[in-house]
């Protein structure tokens, strides 16, 4: 008798809790993927496609779904990989060889003597940072360039180079006294 009562009671309890959780699942349904948004914020937004996805957002979405590895973002390098791994609570993975050192920021520069005005680079630029028209000289808006290098392979005359941005007194950074002291020792 008691055993039967026990079975019934626990059956009832399970049912009740099941209903409660079922209700909660409907009530607290999460629309969209807030995690993808969070990851997207961590990505460098170069839109370079080096991860194999068409842009930073698709990669973030794939990461959120657990379909992509954390170590694919080459411009972001190791710091971005670590941040994403921390966010997703997964083991960090070593970056591919070429991406272990974060590259200094570079921008594309069109050699205007060589440019033939083919507009191919304009189509390739993911952030519309190149201006120009057919048979007219093109130029890169330095401020908008993310350094994704997508315009380089499409140029039929190889007139685009990646250049370092020269520091100005405004962008110049005071050296880190700690590393200075360490290097002195």
């Amino acid at each position: 008798m008691s055993a039967l009562a026990g079975i019934l009671i626990f059956l009832g309890l399970s049912l009740a809790f099941g209903l409660l959780l079922g209700y909660a699942a409907v009530r607290f349904k999460v629309e969209g993927d807030p995690v993808a948004e969070l990851i997207d914020k961590k990505l460098p937004q170069t839109q370079c496609g080096q991860c194999g996805y068409p842009g930073c957002k698709p990669y973030a979405e794939a990461l959120a779904k657990g379909e992509a590895e954390v170590n694919l973002c080459i411009p972001g390098g190791e710091p971005t990989m670590l941040e994403i791994a921390e966010l997703l609570q997964v083991e960090p993975k070593p970056m591919q060889a070429e991406a272990t050192e974060p590259k200094p920021p570079m921008v594309a520069l069109i050699n205007e003597d060589l440019c033939i005005g083919c507009v191919l680079c304009i189509k390739a630029c993911p952030v519309d940072a190149i201006v120009g028209a057919t048979k007219m000289m093109h130029t890169v808006i330095k401020k908008e360039c993310t350094g994704c290098e997508l315009c380089i392979p499409v140029c039929p005359v190889d007139c685009i180079d990646m250049v370092f941005e020269q520091p100005t007194p405004q962008t110049w950074k005071w050296p880190d006294p700690k590393s200075a002291a360490e290097s002195a020792q």
């Binding site: 959780l21 009530r27 607290f28 999460v30 807030p34 995690v35």
Partner: peptide, 11 residues
């Protein structure tokens, strides 16, 4: 229940 509530309110 709490897990679902937190997932919704504070991702």
């Amino acid at each position: 229940f709490t897990e679902m509530a937190i997932h919704k309110s504070s991702p």
